[in-house]
């Protein structure tokens, strides 16, 4: 089982439910959620100096973002992994960068994950604990496309027993709920009538703050459920029980990589921690 780090490895100490000391053997860089947080080529070159093998996370992108990512792919050494969140990015990887290793990112893990309705999940239907990735036909399709790994979120309702018998990563301790090309934080520096336009340029306002929403209006018993908004993406913190279940899956061999993100994964590569 491989432990990977995305962000500050020192901050991984003390995450409830995880071992106190973790020896990381892979580093993740980049961003899965926002085109404006794609690293610069210089920042990526500096990250390549690290002794650990590298996985570059990439977000869903416009044509402009595809071009920016292609300039990064040209820097990566053969065998480097690229986690894609967009079929267009996979298309570019397969056609123009066959020496890189495509990995299906967790945004393409389309299972329902909505902590608001956890009570409905107390005895969930099998279908709620599954998604496309468990289909044999889909795994064959990915294999044919050269995709070597799938990455998943730890679902609040848990997984159905059979994860794909292929390399599988799971992210801890945050899951994503929803993301958008419209960024609330970016609106801070626009006139009211010009706010909230898809893909609008920003000043990385997301780096200054986050918004913590508490589900006080829940019709269920989870009025303390929190949603963490950082930039354009909402996250939830996984429970210790969920983390324990993922560690059990890893112990059983169903998950062969854990990706630890000690902070909400919306940082700018190369910026001071």
């Amino acid at each position: 089982m491989e432990w990977s780090i995305h962000g500050n490895a020192n901050a991984a100490r003390g995450i409830a439910g995880l071992p106190p000391e973790i020896l990381f053997s892979r580093r993740y860089v980049g961003n899965e959620f926002c085109e404006h947080l794609i690293p610069s080529p210089d920042a990526l070159r500096r990250a390549l100096d690290d002794r650990l093998p590298l996985t570059l996370l990439t977000p869903y992108v416009s044509d402009r973002g595809v071009a920016r990512l292609a300039s990064l792919f040209a820097i990566l050494p053969p065998g480097a992994e690229v986690a894609f969140s967009d079929w267009g990015v996979l298309n570019v990887l397969r056609r123009d960068f066959p020496a890189l290793v495509p990995v299906q990112g967790r945004l393409l893990h389309k299972a329902l994950r909505d902590p608001r309705v956890m009570e409905l999940f107390s005895d969930p239907l099998p279908a709620l604990r599954q998604s496309t990735v468990e289909n044999h036909s889909y795994r064959e399709m990915l294999r044919g496309l050269g995709v070597r790994r799938v990455e998943l979120d730890a679902l609040p309702q848990g997984f159905d027993a059979a994860l794909p018998p292929a390399p599988v990563s799971v992210y801890l301790p945050y899951g994503f709920v929803s993301t958008s090309r419209v960024c609330q934080a970016a609106g801070l520096h626009y006139r009211k009538e010009r706010k909230f336009q898809p893909g609008a340029p920003c000043r990385h306002e997301c780096q200054t703050h986050q918004v913590v929403f508490t589900y006080a209006n829940s019709p269920f018993q989870n009025q303390d459920q929190q949603f963490l908004l950082k930039g354009n993406t909402y996250f939830y913190r996984q429970t210790e029980a969920a983390i324990a279940s993922i560690l059990a899956l890893a112990g059983a061999g169903a998950v062969d990589r854990l990706v630890i993100q000690p902070e909400l994964p919306m940082h700018v590569l190369g910026a001071a921690a």
Binding site: Y60, D114, R116, V117, L120, S178, S180
Partner: peptide, 16 residues
């Protein structure tokens, strides 16, 4: 849709 519809993992179930 406030979000990128294909990347919103939530339900519109009437309870919530």
């Amino acid at each position: 849709c406030a979000f990128e519809e294909g990347f919103c993992s939530t339900t519109h179930h009437h309870s919530v």
